[in-house]
């Protein structure tokens, strides 16, 4: 069974004055298997963010459905959505979404505290993760006292500590310098190697070239996919670049 499955997802926005309808997603179907690392690429306005919002149950599709471990997330009641998200999904955001009022440690604990876990357990879960992410020294600091890369690592720790079935990352490297980007991508790769399923939306070819599969979205549809297969990062990078060039040139089909 796939961990995530999108079946014919369609999303139509109606503009404020009711007249124009905008079709953000036409018909998106794909599967993500357990342990996969998938990158979704596309230009601005291609529908990436809408898709991510629907996968994250932040938004509901106009048609089609999303299955998480075979369960229709559309069936989750509105009142239970936040808890569902908390228990099953982990998020990494472009702008970190750390609360200034908490230390990094408390920021990381936040979802667990919401789940009602005790301090002992939280602490025991955090230690290996903090070590892996190299943020043990920073735990007592506040978000505004550390760099962007460190903030993002704390945000990743907050995501991983709940042991989510699926990590959804929205432009996780968007606000980072190149060194921090490399570090974060290494972390993602490590985590994935240990079995964590990751779905990442990104603009960055470099970020996407570290994934196991790259999915291209154009005009609200899955336009093309590249599997890493035996390629190295560099080779995958090249393939992605070529694909993007072709998309930019308006080709309707791609042969790579």
């Amino acid at each position: 069974m796939s961990i995530l499955e999108a079946q014919g997802v369609r999303k139509v926005y109606t503009t404020r004055f009711g007249g124009n309808k905008v079709e953000a997603l036409k018909n998106v179907s794909f599967r993500v298997e357990q342990g996969e690392y998938v990158a979704i690429m596309g230009e601005s306005g291609s529908g990436k963010t809408t898709l991510l919002n629907i996968l994250a149950v932040l938004d509901r599709p106009t048609a089609g459905r999303v299955l998480l471990e075979g369960k229709d997330v559309g069936a989750v009641k509105e009142s239970a959505v936040a808890a569902f998200r908390r228990d099953n999904l982990g998020f990494v955001f472009q702008d970190f979404n750390l609360l200034d009022t908490f230390t990094l440690e408390d920021n990381i604990y936040l979802p667990l505290v919401l789940m009602g876990k005790g301090y002992e357990e939280m602490h025991n879960r955090l230690m290996p993760i903090a070590e892996k992410l190299g943020i043990q020294e920073l735990l007592k600091k506040y978000p505004y006292e550390v760099s962007g890369g460190q903030k993002q690592r704390a945000a990743v720790a907050r995501t991983l500590i709940t042991r989510p079935k699926l990590v959804l990352a929205d432009e996780p490297t968007g606000a980072l310098d190149s060194k921090s980007t490399d570090e974060l991508l290494d972390i993602f790769a490590d985590v994935n190697r240990l079995g964590q399923t990751i779905l990442m939306v990104t603009h960055s070819v470099k970020a996407a070239s570290r994934a196991g599969r790259v999915m291209f979205i154009r005009d609200g549809e899955v336009f093309h996919q590249i599997y890493r297969g035996e390629s190295t990062n560099e080779q995958l990078y090249q393939k992605i670049s070529d694909t993007l060039t072709m998309i930019a040139n308006g080709k309707s089909t791609v042969y790579v």
Partner: peptide, 11 residues
Amino acid sequence: IMQNVGMTKAE
């Protein structure tokens, strides 16, 4: 942010 992290509106 709290909403994004998984707090419900009611909470």
